[in-house]
Amino acid sequence: MIRDITIGQYYPADSILHRLDPRVKFIGTFLFLVSLFVADSFWGYLLATCFLAGIIALSKVPVKFMLKGLKPLFILLLITVIFNLFLIPGTVVWELGFLKITQEGITQAVKIGIRLVYLVIGSSVMTLTTTPNQLTDGLERIMKPLNKIKVPVHEISMMMSIALRFIPILMEETDKIMKAQMARGADFESGNLIQKAKSLIPLLVPLFISAFRRADDLAMAMEARCYHGGENRTQMKPLVYQGHDYGAYGVTLVYLAAEIVIRTVM
């Protein structure tokens, strides 16, 4: 059961978006998020909607998957919208006791709602079309300048990719330990929250011990294969910008510029 959990939600498909350089997708997503806060009028939002719809169509990922990402955020979304709806002062349109809805409140709530939804969909387009590995690679390259101020960029990205590789292994191990303990009468299902949490302790101790042992083994295996940090290291799959990557940058920048123009003109 515990094995069904997947980290990262990559959706394998063959689209132009999947082939883009992860750096483009990273920076593009960031620019899209910026544009959402630039857009403030009906036309601005319309343009953002068109842009997002176009991207989704290009990604070949079913819209269903995009909306899935919204589910965990539903409550947060609801709270934000309700707060904005009731708490912004202005021209009152509807009143019941101490609750009042104002004209400004409605517009603000709608805006915030759209922004949040687009924000989540925009970033899930990135995670759905990029493998976790490409994401770490892309991050490493984007962060590279930080090396100058002594941030261990290569080491951080190495840790991230090792963590990604060991998640399924540790999941499997948890499952194994759980079953071994259930076979000896341990109970993980019943009781209240505190009892349940307590019953996890005998699960976590062996899991930690085995994780440390694995880490030790892995460190030795890495050393045996000549690993000595990031210096003088070459890459098997270096990131190189292709023509379509520059194109994607161009399209995103034109879109952002259009949003800024709409904002200043309207």
Partner: peptide, 24 residues
């Protein structure tokens, strides 16, 4: 399990040469 570093088979095989600074 404890000696494979890459998340894809070919990337793991490439790990050693990468460390040695072999050209791509």
């Amino acid at each position: 399990d404890n000696q494979i570093i890459g998340t894809v088979v070919e990337e793991d095989v490439g790990f050693g040469p990468e460390n040695m600074g072999v050209p791509t």
